[in-house]
Design a binder for these strands. Structure first.
Lengths: 207, 207
DNA sequence: TATAGGCGAAGTGTATACATGTATACATTC
DNA sequence: GAATGTATACATGTATACACTTCGCCTATA
């Protein structure tokens, strides 16, 4: 039960919607639950705070973050900016072998698409493409932004019905990449992200 | 002596080049120096790790980060991406009052330009512009990237000679903003950042 | 009745003590 | 002589105990 293990566990619960946005994360409570003292819990909470999933206020404890619609809008704009740039760089470094791997991951994520693991497959697909850009920090930043959004996607909506359409959009991106139509692929990604943002914002407004 | 205070102090030393990249940050040593136990030191190190200024390895302690030229290149590309977007959004929201404030900060930063506070004035100018974009998270991300770079700017070079030229570039950006020539201003900023990247990379190679 | 002030409980923050892991130097073996 | 095993010193990780802050609740007073 290291702080990293605890952080991973809590991260999973935050992203699965078990711990809803705004929830107070009591040190004593978590310490009892994980069977450790409060010190490793504090470390775990600091790790999550560094990732932006948790807010720590001195003498007042930690709580799961809560976002306003404006912040969600900003995060999706940032993702669009960073992910489209990453896609362009990846497209410039594309090889037949790379395209093959991307297509393999796409098919696999297609199988994962049913059920709660939907988001994992989706991200596996995008990450596989982005990796070929060779931008480690950029990928870390994208991943952090994505996690923050996912917190709310999971909490507010499970998006089961949208799956088929999304997978079609994945297919479009791969097809454009294969043909070397970089800007077409970027447009596809932009629409993909915009659709997610619209969907999430609508759910936030409704609840 | 709260963890936040300690983190701020260490951040300052990291950015001033007192603590060189790669330096080991011993918990006991820092605890003695700040006159506290190791617990708040650990918290401070976690905060800095969250900001990307420090790397923590389990059971092996913390050290000031060290960047490769490739990483510096990536960071400047990210800054260009995020800052140019921020500038465009700010330009779209520009008002006479905003322009006046920007010009006031520019003149003030002109005075600060001599000496070690050069970087503070430079950032004050850019931040003043970016604020009008109303993008809090984006600004935080830019600030984090900028800090990471500054770590190496301070450590490897003090950039005293470049000051006059840089201030001229600031003036150019303001002038284009005033005339509503957004893309010209963006080009100015791009050149500004590219100049800094080139300068820093050259110094890294030389040392 | 409304409000200001002050207990008191609950939770976080920190210091001390102890447990655990890592590195260095030396001894041992092939 | 090189490589591996081992012991010791040192740094980090964690638990317990105590100090401090915060916030709710109660009481006294206008």
């Amino acid at each position: 039960m290291t702080p990293e293990t605890i952080a991973r566990e809590l991260r999973g619960e935050l992203m699965a919607g078990v711990l809803r946005p705004g929830t107070d994360l009591s040190q004593v409570e978590l310490a009892q639950r994980f069977g450790v003292s409060r010190i490793p819990i504090r470390d775990a909470l600091r790790i999550l705070a560094g990732e932006g999933l948790v807010e720590i206020e001195a003498n007042r404890g930690a709580r799961a973050i809560s976002l306003t619609p404006d912040e969600v809008r900003e995060i999706y704009d940032l993702r669009t900016l960073l992910e489209c740039d990453c896609l362009r760089r990846a497209a410039a470094a594309m090889t037949p072998a790379a395209l093959e791997e991307i297509e393999r991951v796409r098919l696999k994520s297609d199988l994962d698409a049913v059920g709660a693991e939907w988001a994992d497959g989706d991200w596996a697909f995008h990450r596989t493409i982005y990796q070929f850009a060779g931008r480690r920090r950029q990928l870390v930043m994208i991943e952090a932004l994505r996690r923050t959004c996912l917190l709310f996607v999971s909490a507010y909506a499970t998006m089961p019905t949208k799956t088929p359409r999304w997978l079609g959009e994945h297919d479009d991106i791969v097809r454009h990449l294969r043909r070397g139509e970089t800007e077409q692929a970027v447009l596809g990604l932009k629409g993909h992200l915009e659709g997610a943002a619209t969907h999430l914002l609508a759910h936030m407004m409704a609840s």
